[in-house]
Amino acid sequence: MAQQERATIAEAQAPQFELRRQLPFYVDVLRRLVREKPLGLFGGALVLLIAILAVTASWTAPFEPNQLGAGGRLEAPSTAHFFGTDNLGRDVFSRIVWGARIAMFVGFAAVVVATFISVALGLLSGYFGGWFDILVQRLVDAFIAFPALVFLLGVVAVFRDWQAPFLQREGVFSTPVFIIIISLGILFGVGQSRIIRGAVLSVSQATYVEAARAIGVGHTRMILRHILPNVMAPIITLATLGLGNAILAEATLSFLGLGVPPDVPSWGGMLSREARIHMTVGWWLAVFPGVALSAAVFGFNMLGDALRDLLDPRLRTG
């Protein structure tokens, strides 16, 4: 009787168990994000909204971002201009929508570069260890000790007048934007490589790695098949958190006049130019780009924080 009850219970539980096991890993993460991390979900929704605005800017924005006289000079927010106009009569809402494009583009591109650098340095340094690890880590130490903003300003200032032959001279795909992306990528990538290295050191001690090593698996296969997939969690988390930082850094550079060219609408550029000159008479010039910037950074940070909780086995609950 008791045996039959146990069997019934096991049958009742079995489908549930099967269902969970059949869910792909990332779908499961998404499901848990919805169920367990509402703030992360909210952050993800914000990020999605900004991404949609960035992609659909040509349809979403009611005016061209640089259209002079789209409205009157310094008009307050109204139904005609949701976020008001700047001193050149340009529609602030349209500029914020178009600004999302440069923010997301620079953010994603910089994170791709940063991830490549951090994974390359972290994997190789952590896996091979020895003198190579010592050398790489001391260089990373030296780099981390260098003030981030000074590094960014220095790189951007030095290469400001350089023109890459394969890029446009202005616009989103221009050399100045490329330089910002590369410098942000280096800045974040080198710093993040320390975390990847830590994860690699931990994974390298795992039994399955020892087993793979025992049967003579080569370095390349070991790194790509056995180490890398098992450090994906910190990589994804770092990338998500890095996006917010990259967007903030781009805005900072634009604010300091070393960012994207002035005719490319960017949130930092809006704060630096029209807001800085006219915010005492046009609060909307500072508030709306500031809110957009905060929302993007908040969204990525919340999402990144939630993903870290969901992907890190040590932080898993239930």
Binding site: L271, V297, F298, N301
Partner: peptide, 25 residues
């Protein structure tokens, strides 16, 4: 922890606004 994190992000937003008061001309 979350409360502090949230306020930190809000602070970052305010800092972003405060940026509008600095610079050169």
């Amino acid at each position: 922890r979350r409360l502090l994190y949230g306020s930190g992000v809000a602070g970052a937003g305010l800092a972003g606004l405060a940026l509008a008061g600095c610079g050169d001309d």
